[in-house]
Design a protein around this nucleic acid. Structure first.
Lengths: 196, 196, 196, 196
DNA sequence: GATGAATGAGTGTTCATTCAT
DNA sequence: GATGAATGAACACTCATTCAT
């Protein structure tokens, strides 16, 4: 009865959605959300303006979809760095953060830029808040195992520092001495257990 | 209708310019650059739209003037914290940074948000780059005096960390444990000379 | 996969057409023609957008079909009120008009609203004009039999009045005193023969 | 100080406002509110789209302004027809209504068309409701003085009839026999007192 | 016969900027 | 120096219509 099967339609939908999401990420990440127009996204995705609205209710919903996509990727990465040795886990974590920053310039820029507009995008605030809490708890636990005195504040410092790096890498790109900083950080935090 | 002296004109110019700059800073800081219109600035400064364009070539030039103003204030602050004892100077510096962040929510937000658009605002890139270099050099010198081994990287870490705090305070406002973090930071960096 | 007979196809066609027409009537009547989208009609008729265009050339042609449908219903009603006694026929007519208005809020609204756009919908103009002529002639004939002096103008007045009620009922809904008005109207027009 | 005086600005504003209001009335009245775009109004008023929004917050506010303008005119007319003799006043009223309909085609069409969208335009509903109440009371009073038995319902009938004429004139324009209908109406209602 | 993905012209609205005075 | 009326390009979004399957 139907001319195309459900599966065929699904394929088409997915392909178009993907093209749009990728274009949106690219542009939101490089120019920022406000400075990117739907027309630009459509053009970059080689698609009509109207189609964007077939798949996403509004520009803001498109942004939400882009961010949600990213978050899922983030979760997967965390699981891969667990290790029986807490020092090793922390080292993995640090290395992963640094590597991610080196490779995901546009996502990084998008996330930082959104963090300046938390009031406007409630969903970002909720998401960031939840992520940050999980983040902090994990770090605190690790640092406790590594016998840090005030693990809670140390975790805060480490988390703050990670985002500081995100900001600086975003601003300076390759000029930021990621390797040196990473090494010193590992020295400071992952060699602690042996010292104490 | 007595003709006005040059000085009088100059006074008027300066007063109007100041009113506009203040309104622009306030609005750019709270709503963001994109979301603030020239009409809003003019209204808030109790001035006509046309007058804004008499003093500033464009919205972007107005932004530039606002940022320049901020930077000058920053320079003044640095001079006030110098102390013969490097540990004391560093402590002053840390305290000043923390205090500024606690008190200047909107400026902080404006600066962070501009840092995400360095490609668009070339003058911000140049400015930030120059400031950062001076900043880093000053920190490196201090840390060297405090006998840190790799003072260059430590300076980088400290600068990165400051901006990380800026980012987190902007996001979390009063919820960020500024005091605890500040204390731990002072312990880590300003007690070094006595230890070594 | 048995081939379907012509009759079966015809049945399918008719069923789909009917569903679409009903949905369109409902939506045009409640939201208005401009404010109703083809997508809404298709959804409400549980049919694809494409199918609507299989059966109706355009949105405007669909409207035309809807209106034609309505008109046929109107014709059927007229035949049911004929009576040997002209006074009785007129009374039937009045009562039918009032009852229809009380029961067909949405159709009434659609027709009035279309009458304000006669220039745009030529077919409505033609249709309305033809209907009105027949209407007037019937009324004139009746009133002549009831010995009204200037039956032509009286017929015009009655017809005008009917549409005035349509307008007011549409605006005021239940607040309009349909019963009182109906009674007075019957008194004025259907008791004439006994007086003269 | 100011380049143009307040009065000059006021003049300019008024002239532009008037041009826009006139164009809007013309187009809303002929094509309807929905079918008229701001672009069309601006073009017809020989003005930029942007200017329309300088003077009117939104398309709906523009409509409101147009309608309010009309209503004020209506009020002025009522006062001019009062007469010590109620029969004469009623006659004046009838004549005024008929004359207004003959001369104000577009306003009439606009008002009828808005009456089909009372739910959408709250301000029209409020306005119409208030006008109608005053209208009915005045008619009732007049008819009471003229010794009509059920003056309340008669007033309702007259008011309904007026709007019926409005509807028919709007549809048929010059083809509607305004004069004959007017004469018969005056005969029916304004000769009553002498008979009784 | 039937589907719904895709298009593009059009909508209401905003706003940086210009300019006559 | 100062005003605000005026412009026009741009924006987010809608929707009648087409078409490959």
């Amino acid at each position: 009865m139907s001319p195309r099967s459900k599966a065929q339609f699904e394929e088409i939908r997915e392909a178009s959605t993907k093209k749009i999401l990728e274009a949106a990420l690219e542009l939101f990440g490089t120019r920022g959300y406000e400075a990117t127009s739907i027309a630009q996204i459509a053009k970059s995705a080689e698609v009509s303006k109207g189609l964007v609205y077939n798949y996403f209710e509004s520009k803001e919903h498109l942004l939400e979809a882009v961010v949600m996509d990213l978050m899922n990727i983030g979760d997967e990465m965390v699981e891969q760095m667990l290790d029986p040795d807490p020092a090793k886990t922390l080292e993995n974590l640090i290395k992963t953060v640094f590597q991610w920053l080196a490779e995901n310039d546009r996502l990084n820029r998008l996330l930082v830029s959104l963090s300046t507009q938390l009031d406007r995008f409630q969903f970002v605030r909720d998401l960031a808040s939840k992520k940050m809490d999980g983040y902090l708890m994990m770090l605190e636990e690790l640092l406790q195992k590594l016998d840090f005195e005030d693990a809670k504040t140390e975790a805060r410092i480490l988390a703050t520092f990670f985002d500081g790096i995100a900001l600086h890498v975003m601003m300076m790109k390759e000029e930021y001495p990621l390797l040196e900083v990473q090494e010193m950080l590992i020295n400071k935090y992952c060699k602690n257990s042996t010292v104490n």
